[in-house]
Write a protein that binds this DNA or RNA. Structure first.
Lengths: 255, 255
DNA sequence: ACAAAAGTGTTTATAATACACCCATGA
DNA sequence: TCATGGGTGTATTATAAACACTTTTGT
């Protein structure tokens, strides 16, 4: 287990200088998209999960590695989507003030954090329920925030979130949206609401249902009695083989 | 003008260590896509145009800057598409042998070239006729090669080309294909052949023509008498405003 | 019996596809 | 006048979109 002492033993000699990785991890709950964020220790500073790249590890391995530490999972969908490389993407002065108070930030460590970083961003899609969240050494909170209630994030992290969200919107027919974000069993309604949350528009219930059934990616399971005074919906699971086949061919789920 | 002396004066202290930029520049001629490549001085080594990033320049500025030097142009379409960050993407041993013979590669320079580099790749689309090609300091040739006759490129550069080409295929409806790759005046036939080259499949002539005309992105100009024993085709130019408007909305050119 | 939401059906509009037809051109 | 390729027309099919009808559930 990591502890306070480890934080103070932390050093950066095994990392590539100037290169970082940040992750926009998207989950879905209560009909809303959520983003995984961290709060820095003792500060009102929010940031995306991220880290540095070890000298002997691939960029993608670094992302996998960072997310394994934060969520306990190996992500089934994790893909690089953009590299942020502007000179002034980390506002040095702002950062210096924020870090200045902490005992952790010795002069040497300060120097590391104040250098120019080029950050490659990864997009992950995950079933929130499967995650076992743990803050990193510099943070005291690691939580899901609804996309619509995003706090102000440090540096260009809000831009990263925006870019990732518009990415899944554009690429909606080529990404394993349902299979990554929904639990094993789900209703057609929640499947539809997921697409509506991503596309930010309402879809016709009848047409959605017919289209998804016609694609052959769903297994119809038992009915789910909800206790409400209406017809019980079926539960569905994904036919993974068929789903992946369609994704590879790039067949459209939604127009 | 750059000359041999300048090569020997070249040093790397103004560059960010470990970070490079490579460019997949796509042109279109004789019904085929072409890629801009360089041949290293005195060696049978081919590579994409690329370079390093100055300490005080943005990543995108570095790409713009590199291409200005190679082609004399400021690209109207130039976009980052992937960052290659595997530990062993540059095969050190191979590189060491290739560079070992050159007088340019002093120990210090060798050390620079043999470090691990993370390379961010940019995709550019350009009218080949507008380019005024110039090799870089390490190369003696800077030429267009037809995509179907790509030489073996150094490192992972062939992978970069493949990734860029499949990127434009997938993104075909969102990229300024015609306006970037065709000359000012062109025939409907050459416009169609361009899409066929990208999509690698044949399209129906009548339907293509009707669709493009209906989109309202084309201005019909004078007829072009080719000298051939058949009806003379019209020349067209692009209605740039309408074209960009459609691109922004993401309206489909081709299915 | 009623409201509410699920599941399915039907109609209409729009777009994709295939191919046919006529026209201009130079030998 | 013939072959060739360009421009346009049309019939067929497939898909999207809108909405209506029926079924199931608990009160």
């Amino acid at each position: 287990m990591k502890n306070e002492k480890e934080v103070f033993d932390m050093n950066f000699k095994n990392f590539i200088p100037g290169q970082s990785v940040d992750c926009v991890i998207i989950g879905y709950d209560q009909h809303e998209l959520h983003i995984l964020v961290l709060k820095w220790k003792g500060l009102d500073v929010w940031a995306l999960p991220g880290g540095f790249v070890e000298k002997n590890e691939d960029l993608s391995t670094a992302a996998t590695h960072i997310l394994k530490e934060r969520t306990g999972l190996n992500f089934s969908y994790l893909e690089q989507f953009y590299t942020f490389g502007d000179v002034d993407r980390r506002k040095k002065e702002e950062l210096e003030i924020k870090l200045g108070n902490s005992v952790f930030f010795t002069e040497e460590r300060m120097k590391w954090f104040l250098q120019r970083f080029i950050s490659t961003s990864y997009l992950g899609l995950v079933d929130m329920d499967k995650c076992d969240l743990k803050p990193d050494l510099l943070s005291d909170l690691c939580v899901w925030k609804p996309l619509k209630e995003m706090p102000i994030l440090i540096f260009d992290h809000n831009e990263m979130v925006q870019k990732a969200v518009s990415h899944i919107k554009v690429q909606v027919n080529y990404l394993p949206i349902g299979i990554s974000l929904l639990p094993k069993k789900f209703t057609m309604k929640s499947f539809q609401l997921l697409y509506e949350a991503i596309l930010n528009k309402s879809l016709d219930r009848g047409n959605f249902q017919r289209k998804m059934l016609k694609l052959g990616i769903l297994n119809r399971l038992e009915k789910q009695l909800t206790g409400a005074a209406n017809k019980a919906p079926y539960l569905y699971s994904f036919n993974k083989e068929k789903y992946k086949e369609l994704l590879d061919k790039g067949i459209g789920f939604i127009n």
